[in-house]
């Protein structure tokens, strides 16, 4: 899985422009899915037909997008003005290298004379090496999105650092589960959703069409094991977190219990996630149509809103096993 995660993490997928990461995922799942398609919003939806004609559908979802920037204006001298997509720090962008989805690179600069604490997005610009407005406009049409350009690398024996790990570990888990899952009685839908960062937009139509009887979302949660971190009980390497609540969902207690019992039965380490300020796609799934029972498994991630996130690969492996065993348990209940 490590290879996939690295490959997925490097791929660009700012919300609304997920083509690159979606193409990689489509290739990864193709051998294991009966069919797949991309919907109007850009969600990648794969199907695996159930063998038992139970009439039930189980949906697995992970978001594939990441925060980024968008070019909205080109100035006379060829500098590109940008706006944020999702939660991305202004100060963190200064001096960064950014890669637009059309493979144009740039460097983020800031208007002179601004003190760091007062900088807003309106003060930033991207230097793409253009010498004129026309030059820049031909390279970066208005509306082109981009991401901070960072590779991923191994950190110690078990850990991985890189950008966008918070969404891509979930995608990798889904691919792994699909690969390992034997014939399954229920119809299975795998949704790689778009536009989670600006407020779980992609998942809404995807959940609506799924009419699922049961769903699981795999994502990430903020770890609290760094110096003076905000209060959180989550620790890297102690297992995936079973979500109890976040800003958008209170997981139905019977699903939380099912996940915990599954973990205990298979002796998988796990932690419990109560996060007041984060959100996931699970909330939008729960409220689709007359309600879709949904649970969520989160991989703890350090430095969440930076381009250098850190995850523990053992947590990812355990998340995959937990999802797999929960699926098996669900079909017997």
């Amino acid at each position: 899985m490590k290879e996939w995660i690295s490959k997925l993490a490097v791929a660009s997928g700012p919300s609304g422009s997920e083509t690159h990461v979606r193409d990689i995922l489509a290739e990864l799942i193709q051998p294991f899915a009966d069919e797949w398609h991309v919907d109007v919003l850009g969600n990648l939806i794969a199907f695996k037909k159930g063998i038992a004609n139970t009439g039930k559908t189980v949906t697995l979802s992970a978001n594939m997008d990441e925060p980024g920037i968008m070019a909205l204006h080109v100035e006379a001298n060829g500098f590109v003005r940008i706006v944020p997509i999702g939660d991305i720090s202004v100060a963190g962008l200064i001096g960064e290298r950014v890669r637009f989805v059309n493979r144009v690179w740039g460097v983020v600069g800031v208007e002179a004379g601004k003190s760091l604490k007062d900088v807003t997005f309106a003060d930033l610009f991207v230097d793409i090496g253009a010498e004129s407005k026309a030059d820049a406009e031909s390279l970066i049409p208005v509306g082109t999105a981009g991401v901070i350009d960072r590779g991923s690398f191994e950190l110690g024996e078990f850990r991985l650092a890189g950008k966008a790990l918070s969404s891509r570990v979930g995608c990798a888990v889904l691919v792994d589960v699909l690969r390992k899952l034997e014939a399954y009685p229920h119809d299975l839908q795998i949704v790689f959703s778009v536009q989670k960062e600006p407020g779980s937009r992609g998942i809404k139509p995807a959940a609506f069409q799924s009419e699922a009887d049961f769903a699981l979302t795999v994502g990430s949660a903020k770890a609290g094991d760094t110096p003076k971190a905000e209060r959180s009980n989550l620790v890297l390497g102690k297992g995936p977190a079973i979500k109890i609540m976040d800003r958008g969902i209170i997981v139905p207690p019977f699903i939380k219990d099912m996940l915990m019992e599954t973990a205990e039965q298979h002796q998988l380490p796990y932690q419990l996630e109560v996060s007041a300020d984060q959100a996931s796609d699970a909330g939008a799934i729960l409220l689709s149509r007359d309600g879709i029972p949904v649970g969520a498994v989160s991989v703890p991630v350090r430095y969440l809103s930076t381009p250098s996130q850190v995850v523990d690969l053992r947590d990812v492996e355990h998340a995959s096993r937990l999802v797999l065993e929960t699926l098996r348990r669900y079909h017997t209940t």
């Binding site: 209060r231 959180s232 009980n233 109890i244 609540m245 109560v274 996060s275 007041a276």
Partner: peptide, 9 residues
Amino acid sequence: EIGLIVNQI
């Protein structure tokens, strides 16, 4: 009703 939830021991 509004309530509270344990997030750390």
